[in-house]
């Protein structure tokens, strides 16, 4: 059978929402191939994530709780994923196009002698599976054909909603056979802790750019985000200047977001930034330069000094929300 294997992603054993969007892609693919959706969860403490993901209309969940998977590493995860793909007769292997998915899937593809599609935004069947993907910072969309029997796909999760919950699927143990390599070592993960929603699944994103001039000035971006229950994002220039953590970067080489409402504050609108937010439903731009390119993609543009307009906006919104 032409099954679809989804590699689940979790953080400290909690399922990441990007996995759910990937399940939708997988279900659409399985509907075309006539196969089943199987999910693989690797880690050393993944029982909760495995039973959580089992609720979303999949055929089965396979999990490995092994010390070798305690910390994610491409070199140990890739052979396990490839083995699971073979045992489960998967012809499509997919994962979110997160930094983990991007890091591991090409190694899986090499092991399976498979062609790989990065950042798929749709799947269709037109004399075989065809995938669409953006490139050139989102200025071009291509349709691609993967010529190998097995196809590996990273999924741009902002283009897919989470699937509805269904009956719980069976959860089975998977033996990876992977042993700890002696030529690499996980050292540390310095997590940016936040009470705010994750950038990739927030309904509202407030992003700031270099025009804010300092990390302290990002406080007004956070205040606006908190008033709307949103997440905070930034441009590469703001990250490079050290104002905010790299994890907040939106764009061609950062995260891709598609919230209901996106605020671009003191952001010029370089194509590399637009690549990460053009899919937002409503875009608001606040910039003091009326010629800023960001206004060409904004639904509502306000020419103003951010240092005045943003605090005023936050105060006024507090009275109505």
């Amino acid at each position: 059978m032409a099954n679809v294997l989804v590699v689940a992603e979790h953080l400290d054993g909690a399922l990441r929402k990007v996995t759910l969007s990937t399940l939708t892609f997988a279900q659409q693919t399985a509907a075309l191939t006539g196969g089943e959706v199987h999910v693989l969860v690797l880690g050393d403490n993944v029982d909760a994530a495995a039973s959580e993901v089992a609720k979303y209309g999949v055929a089965a969940v396979h999990y490995a709780n092994e010390p070798v998977f305690a910390n994610y590493m491409a070199e140990t995860y890739a052979p396990a994923i490839a083995k699971a793909a073979q045992e489960l007769s998967a012809t499509v292997v997919c994962a979110p196009s997160s930094t983990t998915g991007k890091d591991v899937l090409p190694r899986v593809a090499a092991k399976l002698e498979a062609g790989m599609v990065s950042d798929a935004i749709s799947v269709s069947d037109d004399d075989g599976l065809k995938f669409r993907r953006p490139l050139w910072a989102g200025n071009v969309i291509t349709t691609v054909d993967v010529l190998t029997p097995v196809k590996v796909v990273s999924v741009r999760t902002s283009d897919f909603d989470a699937p509805p919950e269904g009956d719980a699927a069976p959860v089975k143990e998977f033996a990876s056979g992977v042993s700890a390599p002696d030529n690499l070592e996980f050292v540390s993960f310095e997590q940016v802790k936040s009470e705010r929603p994750e950038l990739t699944d927030a309904d509202v994103v407030v992003a700031g750019g270099r025009g804010l001039r300092s990390g302290e000035n990002f406080q007004m971006i956070m205040d606006l985000a908190d008033t709307l229950g949103g997440a905070v994002g930034a441009t590469r220039a703001a990250v490079d200047s050290g104002y905010v953590p790299n994890d907040w970067q939106i764009g061609q080489t950062g995260k891709v977001v598609a919230p209901n409402l996106y605020f671009a504050v003191a952001i010029s609108g370089a194509i590399q930034h637009l690549a990460g937010m053009k899919g937002s439903k409503t875009i608001v731009a606040i910039n003091k330069d009326p010629e800023a390119p960001i206004f060409q993609v904004a639904d509502y543009g306000l020419v103003a000094d951010a240092f005045e307009a943003v605090p005023e906006l936050t105060e006024k919104l507090k009275t109505i929300t």
Binding site: V140, V146, L313
Partner: peptide, 26 residues
């Protein structure tokens, strides 16, 4: 192993409107 079948431009997002001030925006 992966063949590109065609290249297309993405759907363009039209420019929207300019608003007068914060109240107008809200």
């Amino acid at each position: 192993k992966v063949k590109v079948l065609n290249y297309e431009a993405p759907e363009e997002r039209g420019a929207g409107e300019m608003v007068d001030d914060v109240d107008d925006l809200i």
